[in-house]
Design a protein around this nucleic acid. Structure first.
Lengths: 197, 197
DNA sequence: CAACTTTTATAACGAGTGGTAGATAAGTCT
DNA sequence: AGACTTATCTACCACTCGTTATAAAAGTTG
């Protein structure tokens, strides 16, 4: 079996560039012209590699998830539920204002609302956001079973609360909120979490 | 002076329809075709009345602000700062899941990220969101001065926290979160607020 | 080298974008 | 009624959108 002409661009580098464009402009706002220019390839190469604009987004989201899974591993490894919450919000304050990336969260910036023909993108993003919430939920349910969280605590509500605050932080970060402001939100939010003051 | 042919459509009705389209599809995702169809007018009438697509958005945002100002008057009239916070979050849980409107908040759904040529829309939305935060801030600063809030409380941080939670609720509402879920988030969030348990 | 497979670049596709002339219709005021 | 002003309609503008046909280029394998 013959191999054919090898790909002349680095897929991961190209995906990082595409991720940045989607992050900054959203799915609808990211045009093929922007994407191909940022990725340094022409449209046919893009379509050969990713199938469609939506396919490219999903590949970029997969790569984004890869980054986040490292964060989440650290977050979930917190010794107590409260530590997990603290790590979760703090790491978001940092990552959402990391000057190496566009401000905010790709899963929020990517598109809450889309035009005709892109109706499923918001669902795609929402399902990826839900995954993080589920991870928190499972961690808190375990903490409750272990007696780390009080018996009257509500893991579902706590996970949803943290996930909601995280989305909110994504919104204000994209509007220019500083890292200090996000840290403050994280600190105040933690006041709603059971455990030592 | 002569008056000319009178406008044959109801501006407020048309703006309500435009608002709904922007709300559901975002600024970039709302095409002129969608807008004119929903408003029941043709493009030249739209441009004569609003100048541009962006002008139409601003007019719709003004009308949206009008609605919200009624809510905020009630919210800010709460007897204590904690009541204000409770009213704020509760009213958002209701309004963001009002079946009469698209889910979520127009100021979030409208566009956190936009394409080329619409770069100022996110700023426009952010500045309107900031207004609500400022109103809360002023109310809490007053509460602190009155001794309603403790001396060590931070009105800026509290207002920002509530505003962030509100944005987060907008995000999860647009992803299909139920009214019950939003109420739960509101209830948990209130735990971060100083005052009686 | 020659056969084969895949990627690349050029160029274009039809559809849809926001926006606008130009003509016509519908009112008001003298 | 007739002059005047403004709104509405039809048709269209140049442009961009996501996507793709075609053919040349660049490798690997026999």
């Amino acid at each position: 079996m013959v191999m054919g002409r090898p790909r002349s661009f680095d897929m991961d580098k190209a995906l990082d560039e595409a991720m940045e464009v989607f992050w900054r402009h959203g799915y609808d706002g990211a045009s093929l012209a922007m994407l191909t220019k940022a990725m340094g390839i022409k449209a046919p190469s893009l379509y050969a590699a990713f199938g469609s604009k939506e396919g490219l987004l999903k590949a970029a989201l997969d790569r984004y998830a890869l980054r986040r899974s490292e964060h989440m591993r650290y977050v979930l490894a917190g010794p107590t539920a409260r530590d997990v919450a603290e790590r979760f919000l703090s790491s978001i304050a940092e990552s959402h204002t990391d000057p190496a990336n566009p401000p905010g969260c790709l899963l929020v910036q990517g598109g809450l609302a889309c035009g005709a023909g892109s109706e499923n993108i918001p669902f795609e993003l929402a399902s990826r956001r839900a995954q993080t919430e589920t991870e928190l939920l499972e961690r808190f349910a375990q903490a409750k079973a272990d007696g780390d969280l009080p018996d009257d605590s509500e893991p579902v509500a706590l996970a949803r609360f943290l996930s909601t605050v995280a989305s909110g932080m994504g919104v204000i970060a994209s509007s220019g909120a500083t890292r200090g402001a996000l840290r403050e939100v994280a600190r105040v939010s933690l006041g709603a979490f059971p455990g030592k003051a």
